[in-house]
Simulated assay, not measured.
Amino acid sequence: MLLYVTVGTNDLDGAGVFYDPVLATLGYRRQRQDETEIGYSADGDIRCRFWVVTPFNGKPATFGNGATIALEAETRAAVDAFHAAALANGGTDEGAPGLRPFHAHFYAAFVRDRDGNKLSAVCERPE
């Protein structure tokens, strides 16, 4: 359903320092960059699916209160790695890796990036 997602930043270089290792845990890597944005995708994808951008209107980036971007993880180990990489690169914990009550196999971790954007990695497989 979604074509791509963007999050705003006030420090594009710092955001790259955060997102490069964090998204790598889920199989995404930096594919494009210019002075206003960084685009990430999986190898072989024809377009970037996750963008970190400085706001087009020139005003400071802010995060959405109540907004969370959930990214699919192939394994629970990838969820754990996502969480660890986020904390090691300036993110903050919003929920350690573990099972959630949404269904029997909903294993997730929640973090905020350096700009306060809330992200989650989710594995819905049994192990």
Rank of each mutant, 00 (worst) to 15 (best):
L99W: 02
D11P: 08
A70M: 13
L2F: 15
S120W: 00
N65E: 15
F106Q: 02
T92Q: 14
T54W: 01
C123K: 09
T9P: 01
P21F: 02
K59G: 13
H105G: 01
T68F: 12
F82Y: 04
L26W: 01
G27Y: 03
E37R: 14
G64R: 11
F110T: 11
N65W: 09
G64W: 04
V5S: 15
G44T: 02
G64C: 09
V122A: 02
A84V: 05
P126K: 10
G16N: 03
R47I: 12
Y4G: 04
A108G: 13
L12A: 04
C123N: 04
L99R: 09
R47A: 15
R32P: 00
Y28T: 03
N57A: 10
E72C: 05
D115H: 05
R49V: 14
G14K: 08
A108H: 06
T75S: 12
T54A: 14
E74N: 05
F82N: 02
R125N: 05
P97E: 08
R100S: 12
R49Q: 10
A81M: 00
E127Q: 10
T6N: 10
A109P: 12
D13Y: 01
H105P: 01
A24Y: 01
E74R: 12
Y28V: 02
N89C: 06
V22M: 02
T54G: 01
T68H: 07
E124D: 15
W51M: 08
A108S: 15
S120G: 07
D80P: 02
L71S: 06
R49D: 08
